[in-house]
């Protein structure tokens, strides 16, 4: 089994505290993996380390033909890695001084060197897909939470990344906006975008993921298809967690 995306021995410490303790994970092209587990077990840190928003202390990351040794990653390698991944933040992270459309084009023109016209055409396509065709000129401050997160996801879609990382994309939303955001993610997942999603929405994870990864204490405790993890969890810790979250 070859891995399109291969994570080996990923380790992250904050001071004396080991948050990620040698994570190994392999993703096939188009595979959708959901990470679940108790709070503070390193799920978000794992995503952030894959994008070097947090710098891992050790481990090797392989994305297609790009291999990065975390311990001695150069600035160029980090940029290359970031240009192949896209990140969706819990609290959106929209650029407040840019319109919705500019939030989508920014990465294309500034980072990828696309022409403004080409980037705007792409942005308008995506605005239509995320149901905000008429809000392209709006600044984030004038959008609802659900609309802002859809722009956040749209920005990640625009990059056409090898791997999309979604860090609890609905956790900061008012309940009324959760549905529309989950619907959008579901559609992206249906398009077989390779994705790694940290979520507390168990039903949703079960529905969209090809594989569930259960983490606790900075390690992967158990992984497998949703039916097995939710229906027949092998590890006592997985069973305890699933009982707690109902």
């Amino acid at each position: 089994m070859s891995c399109e995306i291969d994570i080996r021995g990923l380790t992250k410490r904050f001071g004396a505290n080991t948050v990620l303790d040698g994570i190994d994970l392999c993703l096939q092209p188009g595979e959708r993996v959901a990470i679940i587990g108790p709070s503070g077990t390193g799920k978000s840190t794992l995503l952030r380390c894959l994008n070097f928003l947090d710098r891992p202390d050790a481990g090797v990351l392989k994305l297609g033909d790009l291999t990065v040794d975390a311990a001695k990653a150069s600035r160029a390698q980090i940029l290359a890695l970031r240009r192949r991944t896209a990140f969706v933040f819990q609290n959106y992270g929209l650029f407040a001084n840019k319109t919705a459309r500019q939030n989508l084009t920014e990465g294309l023109t500034v980072v990828r060197g696309w022409s403004a016209a080409r980037a705007e055409a792409r942005a308008d396509e995506i605005l239509a897909q995320i149901g905000l065709a008429d809000r392209g000129d709006s600044y984030p401050a004038s959008l609802s939470g659900g609309q802002q997160q859809r722009v956040g996801i749209g920005r990640a879609m625009a990059l056409d990344a090898d791997l999309m990382l979604l860090d609890e994309p609905t956790s900061a939303l008012d309940p009324e906006w959760v549905g529309e955001v989950l619907d959008l993610i579901r559609r992206i997942a249906d398009g077989r975008q390779t994705m790694l999603i940290v979520t507390h929405e168990m039903q949703f994870a079960r529905e969209i993921a090809d594989r569930i990864v259960f983490m606790e204490g900075g390690r992967i405790v158990e992984e497998g298809p949703p039916a097995q993890i939710f229906g027949d969890p092998r590890d006592a810790r997985t069973r305890a967690f699933l009982r707690r979250v109902g």
């Binding site: 994008n51 933040f89 929209l94 990465g107």
Partner: peptide, 16 residues
């Protein structure tokens, strides 16, 4: 005062 998540978002899309 500029929200930290905007820095991270800019970094995440590969900006220098």
């Amino acid at each position: 005062g500029v929200d930290r998540s905007q820095w991270e978002a800019a970094q995440s899309i590969g900006m220098t």
